[in-house]
Nucleic acid binder design. Sequence first.
DNA 1: TGCGTTGTTTCACC
DNA 2: CGGTGAAACAACGC
Length: 285
Amino acid sequence: MPELPEVETIRRLVERHLVGRALETVEVRLPKLLRDSPFPSLDPLLGRSITGARRRAKILIVDWSGDLSLLVHFKLSGQLAIEHAGTDRVVAGHPVPDPHGPYPHRATHVIFGFAGGNTVYFSDVRQFGWLRLMPTARAEEVVESFGFGPEAVGHDSIELHDMAARLARRRIAIKTALLNQQVMAGLGNIYVDEALHRAAIHPGRPANLLRPAELVRLHAAISWSLERGIEQGGAKIVHNRAYPKDGFPQVHGRAGEPCVTCSAPITKIRVGARGTYFCHRCQPA
DNA sequence: TGCGTTGTTTCACC
DNA sequence: CGGTGAAACAACGC
């Protein structure tokens, strides 16, 4: 579930709470999460400090002293919790395990202990996420090798004409095109639905057939939905239902609930084998 | 208990 | 080579 806004929220937490902290202990309870990691263990981080946290697409890049970088992908259900002195806790990413419940949880797979009393818990119910440790120079190459398109939001995000050009050569459903990280980077199933609803575009429309006015609306709607998500610290979807009951996300996870624009009930369909929510009145085929 | 779940990769094919 | 569409995969909850 973590898409760009959730990963960006985690990045900001790492930046705010952990930069300059030295790592004293690390426990990897589920080593398979390090699959494909150039360094097969996180022990090389012991004694080193976090120098910064970056993000590219949905990948978190944590930079450490000694020119090491830890790449983290949260996939469907990754979550990071940062606790200070066993009391104050900030949590971002997937809403399970319960941010207010006890840690470590049985889905907690990595525990970092920092000087100064910070404990960090990486949890992942589905275990689809991964961590990869490598020299920073190699991290740049690895991130590059993913071939991500421009960022979907932010100061250097994709420009309208670039987005239009990239969509013009795809005949697939606009939703499917926007989920492709090589077209643009950061959108996932939740924010795509939000952006298309905001732009009043049916998710199944062929990407190359959008009219200029629709492209303008879509470009603005993508930034809007991702910014709303970041503002809110991420989206909360539990058992296919959106929370809070009235709020953002406005369509994803709200089958049967009234459209915020026209009050017609939100419909759930499948587009490219993905659960897709939209308003049949605001987003005509 | 088999299906749904999502981000991503892989594959055959045009 | 690049776009397409389908299938596969990760593992768990319901």
